Amino acid sequence: MHTPVLTGRVLELLAPALTRPGAVVVDATVGLGGHAAAMLAEFPDVRVIGLDRDLDALAHSERRLKLLAPERVRLVHAVYDEIGTVLAELGRPTVQGVLFDLGVSSLQLDTDARGFAYSRDAPLDMRMDASAGQTAADVLNSYDAPRLARVLRDYGEERFARRIAEAVVRARADEPFTTSARLVELIRDAIPAPARRTGGNPAKRTFQALRIEVNTELDVLARAVPAAFDALAVGGRLVVLSYQSLEDRLVKRGLAEYAQTTVPPDMPLVPPDAMPRMRWLTRGAEPASEAEMAENPRAASVRLRAAERIAPKPGRPQPTTGGAP
C-alpha cells in the first residue's frame, strides 16, 4: 500500500472544518484511498465522498475504505471537474472540505500496462480512465509535427519540442508507435548530447506532456478549482497538492480572485458583498520537508496550497453544517 503525500499537513489544515458536526469532505482524487483513510481515522464523524476517473483505483478504494467505515464513505466514478454535478446528484449543495492530490497515482505509475512510467517498456496508453478516450499512442501517431511540438512545449516545457516532434513524425512513417521504450530511445537521440547529461531522464518532460494531453488535465483543473471553491460552505477548506509548476500556477490563479475585493482599490468603502470570499492558509506553495522526502520520495516535487472560504457568494447565503453524503 502506497504512502500518501503530506498526510499530516493535510489533516492539520482540514481539521478546523472537518471537526464540525455533520462535516462532509470530498476527496476529489481518491486514488488508492490513502488520504481518505487517514481522514476517516482522524475525524470519527466525518463523511467522505471520493471521486476518481480511474475504475481500478475506485475498486481498490472500495475495498480499503469500506472496511474502515462503510457507512461514512460514498465513492463515485467521475472526473474532478464534475464535483458540482456529483454533489447536486447526491443532494449536497455544500461541503466542509475538498482535497485534490493531483498528478499520477501510485497505482497508475506502478502498473506497467498503463504506460505512465518511462523507465519501463510498456504500451503507450497513459489514460487515467482506461475505459475511454485517446491514448498516448493515438497522439503520437496522428498529430502533425507543429501540433505535437506545441503539446510538448506547453505541457512539458520541453526546450527541444520541435526536434522531438519532427523525429516522431519521421519515425512513425516506418512504423506506428506502440510502446514506451522506442519513444524513450527516439527522445534521447533527438536531444543534443549536452542536454542529456543534466536534468534526469530526458523523456520525463515528453511523458508529462503526453499524459496531460491525453487526460486534458490542465483544462479539467482550470474548471475544477472554481467548482470546488463554489462547493465549500463558509468555513470550509480546500487543500491542493500539485506536482509540477503548470498545475501549481493554475491553482494559484484559480483561487486568487476569491481573495480580492471586487471594487476599485480607491473606493473609500467596500460593501459587504464585495469583500474577499477566501483567505489563504498557506504562504505561497509549501514543499515537503526533508524528512518527508526521505521517507516518501514521491513527495519531492509536491507543492501544497490551502484556502478557507470566509464569505458566501453574494446574494446566496450558505449553511456551514454538513450531513450524510
Rank of each mutant, 00 (worst) to 15 (best):
255 L>T: 00
80 Y>N: 08
290 E>I: 08
195 A>L: 05
199 G>A: 03
117 A>P: 02
143 Y>Q: 11
222 A>V: 09
167 A>F: 06
268 P>E: 05
287 P>T: 14
98 V>C: 13
189 D>I: 05
316 R>M: 05
192 P>T: 02
222 A>M: 10
236 G>Y: 11
29 T>V: 12
24 V>Y: 10
116 F>T: 07
126 M>W: 05
287 P>M: 03
25 V>E: 02
82 E>Q: 15
18 L>F: 08
212 I>H: 06
316 R>S: 13
323 G>D: 07
256 A>H: 13
91 G>Y: 09
308 E>L: 10
13 L>R: 05
108 Q>A: 14
302 V>N: 12
246 L>H: 01
202 P>A: 11
44 P>L: 03
160 F>V: 04
233 A>M: 02
170 R>K: 14
168 V>W: 04
196 R>I: 04
76 V>Y: 13
181 A>E: 12
38 A>L: 04
310 I>A: 01
75 L>Y: 11
198 T>N: 08
36 A>W: 03
36 A>N: 08
110 D>S: 13
201 N>K: 04
272 P>N: 02
186 L>Y: 12
242 S>D: 06
286 E>K: 02
164 I>Y: 00
94 T>F: 15
130 A>Y: 02
7 T>S: 15
148 L>R: 01
227 A>E: 10
150 R>M: 07
297 P>T: 10
86 V>N: 05
320 T>Q: 13
122 A>E: 09
61 S>V: 00
282 T>V: 08
302 V>H: 07
303 R>M: 11
128 M>F: 09
150 R>E: 10
247 E>A: 02
89 E>S: 14
80 Y>D: 07
152 L>M: 15
175 E>A: 14
123 P>K: 01
63 R>A: 15
51 L>T: 08
316 R>Q: 08
120 R>H: 12
291 A>Q: 08
151 V>Q: 12
168 V>K: 00
1 M>P: 06
98 V>R: 06
196 R>E: 06
45 D>L: 13
269 L>E: 15
133 G>Y: 06
281 L>T: 13
316 R>W: 07
36 A>E: 07
61 S>F: 01
277 R>M: 03
100 F>S: 01
156 G>S: 13
16 P>W: 10
179 T>M: 13
147 R>Y: 00
324 A>I: 09
88 A>N: 05
84 G>I: 03
229 F>N: 08
315 G>V: 06
217 E>Q: 10
234 V>F: 02
177 F>G: 00
33 G>M: 01
220 V>K: 09
192 P>C: 06
30 V>M: 03
204 K>T: 15
2 H>D: 14
234 V>Q: 07
229 F>W: 12
251 V>W: 07
75 L>W: 14
274 A>E: 06
230 D>P: 00
64 R>M: 08
84 G>E: 13
115 G>L: 11
159 R>H: 07
20 R>T: 13
225 V>T: 15
159 R>V: 04
15 A>C: 09
222 A>C: 04
295 E>V: 09
103 G>N: 04
170 R>Y: 03
155 Y>M: 00
203 A>C: 12
208 Q>C: 04
59 A>T: 14
206 T>I: 14
143 Y>G: 00
316 R>E: 12
207 F>P: 08
49 I>E: 01
198 T>S: 13
109 L>C: 07
